[in-house]
Design a protein around this nucleic acid. Structure first.
Length: 582
DNA sequence: ATAGGGTTAG
């Protein structure tokens, strides 16, 4: 995700923040306040909410000692390693491809493609010829930040300068087409090109393609790739199966996931901790807590070791269903196993405190974390900001944004998305627009989805159009939620024909989720004939209607109260259509 | 070293 501020150096961030915050301050009609004046303000906004008074902020809060227990645990890990983020403008220790690559990779990890490009330019200017690894790092950084044109240019440049691409550089392109663009034909074309260049695709190449297919819900096609892989004498590993587990778990097909784990064992490719973590996540998301506990209890005999992510997953699952006390027992288990809680663990706990107790308490714990020297990141702030937005405390949001910048933590696109959504929900569209159009703010797909939903439903269509016309649509691609949002909005406004035509115009054919949304909208709008025509059209194109469309249909019928009426025969007609009976 | 897992926003 592109950061909003293109440089992490503190002076630059503050200079930048000054311009953004001016707009923000103007937007919510507040003058910048000092710390003490904010405290004074807090007593005013106490009414109805358990906002902290000056006393509460300074002393211990009686309601929960969650964080003190947490920080007690964290203190047992004094030498926790922190992720290394280089300063913008950093120079390599030595001017050779190896050291340049090392630094470029660090910037790529930190989500700073412009710094990667700067180093890449510097390399070439200082006559230090980039090797395959350097080219691959640059292409990967560009792919990860959705800058496809530039990535392709660098690939061409690599070939033009006589550097032979290896499996890794081709695989980065496969990742781009498969995982990011979902253009699987192009991804396969790259693989054929690889073979022609005498560079056989390896297990990473195939696993990358499998990951893209599974993420797009094309599990059958992914199994096809696995077959292709076996035919090419390339053995799958745990990476090759993880995307299948992920797909099954996200679709709630827990049984299928368990069976796959067993198959992995029987073919001599036993599940590793990542596979178990995916399964535990699936268990938690679908309420199989006993099974998750059982899996952890038997880890030794099953031959795997839980890691920090395992516990973060499980703790988060428990917190989400309100079992904070059980979550804490797991945190202690984590400690017993000498696993170090991470900033993600802290964020899970912070979110839980905000939901279980109050956002004020969450905020108090965030401040305590800082005092205790615990690692805090942009997600910690976003967590608190989200809940502050929920209860409409925009002045506190401003305070937090100011604080995080002072701490050297740049607000992310997410931070601004949270605020934009909140301002729209409060009817403050002009203010939301100020943030959106402020210099340096990099909108993403989610920003656009929020704007589409909020502005369209408020009838501000011209304004929406103007806002989105300023967006570089090559860099922001609509996703499945964009389609669903647009279809829902059109249906809710009674524009059924537009909704149908919009679905037809969607590039990926008829995405099943979008079809399901349209089916729902049409039934609710009592446009059964139109729906049947649409299904007819899809079936004639050889497309398959899935169960999702049908379940949306049934829900819509029930909500309309049509289940008791004669219209129920229409449902049967639709079902027959879907089954291909008529 | 190019691939898979956990936290916040639609």
């Amino acid at each position: 995700m592109a950061a909003c501020i293109s440089s992490t150096s503190l002076p630059t961030a503050i200079r930048y923040a000054a311009t953004t915050l001016d707009i923000f301050i103007d937007a919510i009609r507040l003058r910048p306040r000092t710390r003490s004046s904010l405290r004074g303000h807090s007593t005013n906004c106490n009414a109805g909410h358990a906002a902290p008074t000056a006393d509460a902020t300074d002393g211990e809060l009686p309601a929960s000692d969650l964080l003190s227990r947490f920080s007690g645990i964290m203190k047992l890990f004094p030498n926790r390693s922190r992720t290394f983020f280089p300063e913008p403008g950093a120079k390599p220790f030595q001017s050779d491809p190896f050291h340049y690559n090392l630094l470029m990779k660090a910037f790529s990890r930190a989500g700073r493609p412009d710094e990667v490009l700067r180093l890449f330019r510097e390399m070439k200017e200082s006559k230090c010829d980039p090797n395959v690894l350097c080219y691959t790092t640059v292409i990967d950084a560009l792919v990860a930040s959705n800058r496809s044109d530039e990535a392709e240019k660098v690939f061409e440049e690599m070939i033009d300068s006589g550097v032979t691409p290896d499996a890794a550089s081709f695989t980065v392109l496969v990742k781009f087409y498969s995982f990011y663009l979902r253009k699987f034909d192009s991804a396969c074309e790259i693989i054929r090109w690889m073979v022609r260049s005498g560079c056989d695709p390896d297990v990473v190449t195939y696993s990358t393609l499998i990951a893209g297919l599974c993420r797009a819900g094309m599990v059958e096609e992914a199994w096809g790739v696995l077959d292709q892989m076996l035919q090419g004498n390339c053995s799958p590993n745990a990476h090759s199966f993880a995307p299948f587990l992920q797909a099954y778990c996200s679709q709630g097909k827990i049984e299928a996931a368990i069976r796959l784990m067993e198959s992995m064992r029987s073919i001599g490719c036993p599940p590793d901790s990542v596979a178990y973590n995916i399964l535990i996540n699936g268990f938690c998301k679908h309420g199989y807590f006993n099974e998750a506990a059982h899996l952890l209890e038997n880890c030794v005999s099953d031959g795997w070791e839980p890691d920090a992510v395992t516990y973060n997953t499980y703790i988060s699952g428990l917190c989400k269903v309100g079992r904070a006390e059980d979550a804490f027992k797991q945190l202690e288990m984590m400690l017993q196993k000498k696993l170090c809680p991470t900033v993600v663990t802290l964020n899970i706990v912070l979110d839980s405190i905000c939901r279980e107790s109050t956002v004020w308490e969450g905020n108090h714990h965030l401040e305590r974390s800082l005092e205790l020297g615990l690692e805090v990141d942009v997600v910690s702030y976003n967590t608190i900001i989200t809940r502050l937005c929920d209860i409409g405390k925009l002045s506190w949001v401003l305070k937090l944004v100011t604080d995080m910048i002072k701490k050297g933590i740049s607000p992310s696109t997410e931070t601004f998305n949270i605020m934009i959504r909140s301002l729209c929900k409060a009817g403050k569209f002009r203010k939301a627009k100020c943030i959106f159009t402020s210099r340096g703010f990099v909108a993403d797909t989610i920003t656009c989805n929020i704007l589409i939903h909020e502005f369209y439903m408020a009838g501000k269509i011209v304004e929406l159009h103007n806002l989105l016309s300023g967006v570089d649509m090559d860099k922001i691609r609509p996703d499945s939620i964009t389609y669903n949002t647009i279809i829902d909005c059109l249906c809710k406004k009674g524009k059924f024909l537009e909704a149908i035509n919009y679905l037809r115009s969607v590039e990926d054919g008829f995405p099943s989720e979008a079809v399901a949304h349209l089916a729902y909208g049409l039934v609710r709008g009592r446009k059964i004939g139109e729906l049947l025509n649409l299904f007819e059209e899809m079936l004639s194109q050889g497309l398959v209607l899935d169960g999702q469309a049908f379940s949306h249909l049934i829900i819509a019928f029930c909500r309309n109260g049509s289940c008791q009426s004669r219209e129920i025969y229409k449902v049967c007609l639709v079902l027959d259509k879907m089954l291909g009976i008529v």
